[in-house]
């Protein structure tokens, strides 16, 4: 057989295999879900996937998860493969790698007539027509809660004799969608207080970039004075705290740090180096997504189009008692809900 013949036969065999797997997966008489999301190798998404899989199993759904490596082109290809297989699920769960670039794939999913639930990234004007609802975090609420926590800490510091506090913000990249929502909500929350933002560094995601961004900001702002630091998530903030400590600041005394998401380092809160954070649980987010799917399949619509996960504040005083009841009925403690170096 020629090389071309072998290649064509391999492609055909591959397509048949995908179809067979998909057919076998959805062969049982149970509602089926296909979820498109990022990689399990990312800590937050890994816990999210655990949340949707466990809850889907509990609720009697079949679920297939397609992971992309934060790559919209790869996700688009996965959508085409699923559609080409011709075996459609009862619901699609859509976590776009890039909400704007992925609009074409979302439209293609919607045109099959299968309802689509968008998760993690708030709907925009363009994609609202293709989805039946949203389930996920509220960037604004957790940023606002962080602002309120910082106000509380500033009030205590003022009562102890201080005044006029400078805030360094360790941001997501400014091009990232969550940045605008977070910074606006945070600014609203601290408006009218003694807190003034003097620096906003967007080095990137994660602890290493948080460290690097903070170190540079300290070089330019230390003469002005840094009294508070707000991390748009705890991973970034954890790196920032390391940089501040290396620069000679005593965390909790010279500088008070407030973060969000709960994906950093629990020990920093225990030691008083981080004042607090606001919880955003990936496990809960996954469970919420399945709950919304269940509600839609039962009633044909959602009671609320937008459905947020709760974002309670977490500080050293309530850290051991904060708990959320999952949509599987179980009560989860903070170590199970958070996604960073917690429980270690």
């Amino acid at each position: 057989m020629s090389y071309l013949g072998k290649t064509l036969r391999s492609i055909l065999a591959g397509a048949l295999a995908i179809t067979a797997v998909a057919t076998a997966s959805f062969a049982q008489d149970r509602p089926s879900i296909v979820s498109f999301n990022g990689p399990a190798g990312e800590a937050y998404i890994g816990r999210f996937i655990k949340g949707i899989k466990d809850t889907a199993e509990l609720k009697g759904f079949d679920i297939q998860v397609f992971e992309n490596q934060f790559n919209q082109a790869e996700q688009d290809q996965q959508v085409q493969q699923v559609l080409a297989a011709g075996v459609l699920p009862d619901v699609f769960i859509w976590w776009p790698s890039d909400a704007v670039a992925g609009l074409g794939s979302l439209r293609a999913l919607s045109r099959t007539g299968v309802p689509v639930l968008k998760i993690n990234q708030l709907p925009n004007d363009q994609d609202r027509q293709y989805i039946f609802g949203y389930a996920g975090p509220d960037d604004r609420l957790r940023a606002r809660n962080a602002g309120y926590m910082m106000r509380e800490a500033a009030a205590a510091k003022k009562a102890a004799g201080g005044e006029g506090f400078n805030v360094l913000v360790l941001s997501y990249p400014h091009s990232y969608g969550g940045y605008g929502l977070s910074i606006n909500a945070f600014q609203e929350a601290i408006a009218g207080s003694d807190l003034t933002i003097i620096g906003d560094v967007d080095e990137g995601f994660g602890q290493a970039n948080g460290y690097s961004g903070a170190a540079k900001a300290i070089a330019s702002l230390r003469d002005e004075g840094i009294h508070f630091v707000y991390g748009m998530d705890d991973a970034i903030l954890t790196g920032g705290i390391r940089a501040l400590e290396e620069a000679g600041y005593v965390m909790g005394e010279d500088v008070i740090a407030v973060g969000t998401v709960c994906n950093g380092d629990k020990q920093l809160i225990e030691e008083g180096k981080q004042f607090g954070t606001t919880l955003q649980s990936p496990l809960h987010e996954g469970q919420l997504a399945i709950k919304m799917v269940e509600e839609y399949l039962e009633t044909g619509e959602l009671e609320n189009y937008i459905n947020f996960t709760p974002n309670p504040a977490v500080t050293a005083t309530n850290m051991e008692t904060v708990a959320l009841r999952g949509f599987d009925g179980k009560l989860y403690g903070i170590d199970e809900l958070c996604s960073g170096a917690w429980g270690g």
């Binding site: 990689p39 990312e42 800590a43 934060f70 995601f205 994660g206 602890q207 970039n209 960073g340 170096a341």
Partner: peptide, 22 residues
């Protein structure tokens, strides 16, 4: 050295956390 700095490890630390390119 990086693990010593952050007292933790994750398989994705070097895929998304270094430099703006990530």
């Amino acid at each position: 050295a990086f693990s010593g700095q952050v007292s933790s490890a994750h398989v994705n630390y070097f895929s998304s956390e270094f430099g703006s390119s990530g």
